[in-house]
Amino acid sequence: MYERLPNPVHSVVSTLKKSTMTAIGAVLALMILMASIFSPYFLDIYNLQSLIRDLAFIGMIGIGQSLLLIIGELDLSVGKIASLCGILSGIMMMHWGWNSYLSLLAALFLGLVLGSLNGLIISKLRLNAMVATIGMAGVYGGVNLVLTKGKAITGIPSEIHIFGKGNLGPLPIPFIFTLIVLVLVLFFVKKTKTGRYIYAIGNNRDAARVLGIKVDRIRILIYSIVGMISALAGILYVARLGSAQSAIGENWPMNSIAASVIGGVALTGGIGNPAGALIGAAIISVIQNMIILFGVNVYWQSAVSGFVVVIAISFSSLSVILQERKQRKIKLSK
């Protein structure tokens, strides 16, 4: 059926047949190609840098979120953890006069604590992850308001601005952090016992228990990791803006889930590669960048980007459909 399609599309379709990861990689490549053909500014080094700097944040959280999705859960408080940890790093630096690096480390640790708190209440009280993290998001957001009354903390010492604004060679530093997170997480899921167990848990929680896997402990661990990654994103954003603001991260929960799903991580758990979440985040960022570069009317932007996201998701599920069809054909022809 698809053999009759014209050539360029055919090649995309045949890549799609291989695997979800290559499929979304191909979608990203195609979008980058289109963007660079149709806008002379896309490949501008500054545009690429700010694009990559943007996607670093959603990418980082998406990588964490994909771990949770793999065990069949999710965390909707990532944005609030990020902003609360950012604010607290600001308070430590500006109000308590702590050393700035120490403050950042303390904020990271705090993210770990908040994440494990999420994990603890969800696993020990047997709560639904979605509802519980919506609740916790309220708590973290509320604490944030109590501490700041919604006001930003300004005057963050310039020595840490480099973490948000700086580049290492051509690459923005936040993105370097994202790559580090990705490498660590990939090592975790591919090479460590616990990492492999998360797929078992996501596939079949009861079977995992029968296998002697400490399901609850691993769930709490994953929530802690996600909390820490959120805190990292939060403090990098503080470094990027030079001020700690309480309103950042509002879109991070949904965008990180969208990035993971675009990247082939199943919402139902058990399947997916955290690297896919980074590609997913890149797709989202490129879409938003293209929309502005192409001069799409502001009132149309949300509709257009939503539409493109849906197309991107259908591409990864299309690859599964095509794979199945191909296998069926092979068998029939035997």
Partner: peptide
């Protein structure tokens, strides 16, 4: 603020 930043970045590039 985040959206303002990413949108402004693209506008500046374009």
């Amino acid at each position: 603020v985040e959206e303002a930043q990413s949108q402004a970045a693209a506008v500046l590039a374009a």
